[in-house]
Design a protein around this nucleic acid. Structure first.
Lengths: 202, 202
DNA sequence: AAAAGAAGTGAACCATGTTTCACTTCTTTA
DNA sequence: TAAAGAAGTGAAACATGGTTCACTTCTTTT
């Protein structure tokens, strides 16, 4: 008998898998999930359609992992920002700017992650994603509330509200692509809105 | 020669058209846009699939009108609320409660209108919808700003932020279907969030 | 180098759902 | 009531895109 996969072989396999995810995310970034088909991903990664199924059990499985990959990247940036030293208002402001700035740069990706609906199962994933976002903000809000810097409020709900307000601003009618607002104006206004919403400053 | 449509005939035609829209909206209300197919609408309205095309040029056209129908209903309720007498904080509070209350009752519909993605063209419509929502809030905010009741801010952006925060709360991780929050708690917290966000009340 | 198992291939298959169109049925007018 | 135009019908044609699978190619082991 012969041939059991070796580290070498497995590395190559992992490489293809990673390339599929990378190219998938690239597709989402430039055209949203609607442009992700088994065919398009396979083509971008230069493999046959059948090969995709050696790595992912279904399209949903593939999309889910693409989603996670995209999410982790963004969340970690904001989380890092919130983990720094500083007073609460300042941290919240920085985080808002980071979130908005990144989302504005990769608008299609942000839109896809936040709003573009796909199938049932992937939507489940999106819910988790929104939850992760909200959870990113909960600790600092809670700290603010406990220390009296912020008024009494549900940290969980406020976090969701913040995410929603930011997301809507990016995706909705004022989105920089469709309106006269310029980016820094938009960001400044949003920072003010968010700080007021949680009762920071004044 | 003979037969030109008469008022009578046209009325019947309009009736079928209206029934298609009504049944279409019903489908969206109970299963979202993904359950709207030419077949399902035709069946619900008790006509043949071909008949749908006598009234709407394409599926997108049909969905667009369904969307509008649903929108108008909701927006008018909130607009009516905001048009009443009363101080700004009170009106905003009432409007928030109306919006939230209706959305919570018709959760699937609200989700479909706010977040469920469909095709390119319908998404265009959704953007318009969000814009209409935001515009519903602009006048009262502007009035508040002008009269000094609210702090200086961009009414347009704040309106978008309000809509986003409410929408996210309904659709996102705290959505009443998925969490322990009870409806009145959720609504109360959201009202507080919204009022703070625009700087009403302390 | 030959055998064996793993990975890769892509055409064919299948499911879903939109759109068309030749045909039937209904209304109106003369 | 006959002629003609409009509306309604639904089976079939199309389109898209996910999934399968018999086959080929590549690696490793002996």
């Amino acid at each position: 008998m012969a041939y059991r996969p070796t580290p070498n072989t497995e590395a190559r396999k992992a490489q293809i898998r990673a390339r599929l995810l990378k190219e998938g995310l690239a597709l989402v970034s430039q055209g949203g999930f609607k442009t992700v088909t088994i065919g398009s991903v396979a083509k971008a990664a230069e493999v046959a359609t059948g090969t995709v199924y050696r790595h992912f059990t279904s399209k949903t499985h593939l999309c889910t992992e693409i989603f996670q990959l995209g999410t982790e990247r963004e969340v970690s940036k904001v989380r890092d920002t919130l983990a720094q030293e500083g007073d609460i208002a300042t941290l919240l402001e920085s985080a808002t700017r980071v979130f908005m700035g990144r989302a504005i740069k990769g608008r299609t990706l942000a839109y896809a992650m936040i709003a573009e609906a796909v199938d049932e199962e992937l939507d489940e994933e999106r819910r988790r994603y929104r939850e992760i976002w909200a959870d990113t903000y909960v600790p600092i809000l809670q700290r603010g509330i406990d220390s009296g810097v912020l008024p009494a409020q549900s940290a969980a709900l406020s976090a969701v509200g913040l995410v929603g307000a930011m997301a809507e601003t990016l995706v909705g009618p004022l989105s920089p692509s469709t309106r006269h607002f310029d980016v820094s104006q938009l960001t400044d206004a949003m920072v003010a809105f968010c700080l007021r919403a949680v009762g920071a400053k004044s």
